[in-house]
Amino acid sequence: MRQLINFKLRITFSVLAIVLLATQNAFAQFDVEKWSLADEPLLGFVAIPTGSFPMGSNPLIDPMAFENERWSQSRRQGIVDVPLFYISRYETTVAQFREFANATQRNVSASSLEGEANYPVTNVTWTDAVAYARWLDQQLRMASDLPSQLRRFLDEGGRVTLASEAEWEKAAKGEEGRIYPWGNQADKSKANYSSDGVVPVGSFDCPDCSFGLADMSGNVWEWTRSPYQEYPFDETNDRDDLASDALWVMRGGSYSDEANNIRASVRGAADPGARRPFIGFRVVITKQ
């Protein structure tokens, strides 16, 4: 009997602890004084160090790999060097986007501004996302109390923009090239996928996730600054094909996708004018 009571108490405390932890994570702190960016020393930006990583998928390791993730006819994956850049820990939130919309009077969709403050912004076009990044770039440059690390990086040629495919994928899968940000197995406790809707950014506790980034898998697809082209990835040839209709890469899958679509290597693409309830974005500071 006593054992049973102890067991129940342990269960109760465990549940309470999980709820407490989840509650803490569910409400990542943001600073309304600083464009509603994360209340962290680097305003929520996380440094991704210089280094190479395996880009694309190896079907021998990842049987869910799609054909468009193959590097070339002869190679399954490519090794890509990515110099130091900073990426936002969280997807851009409604509050952050609202600050931008209010400041610029840009004609954005009303539905993009309707959500709760700490939810990821959705129903944004690719151009909305780029415009937000450009605005944030100007704000950071003008700020007098910008963390010196970021100030130096900006002064040395960095700019706030969207991630390239390579930057995004490296940040998501890490240098060792995981299938998911936390490892090689799908895990519903670590990402919002196969669910009914978006959740506040950073809702899932994922200490194992590459570089401590939140929601790189699931929640919302994230726009990148890469036009959709066949691999091998090469950012220098982005302007080579101007005749085709524009299609821009988005990454990470969303709440409505299954495990196969939230893998770090999955390449989605959409019309730049598309506004969807499952597409958002996050920003980076890069010199590329």
Partner: peptide
């Protein structure tokens, strides 16, 4: 937004 790639 009108899908003209050069403009993007």
């Amino acid at each position: 937004d009108l899908r003209f790639q050069a403009a993007c």
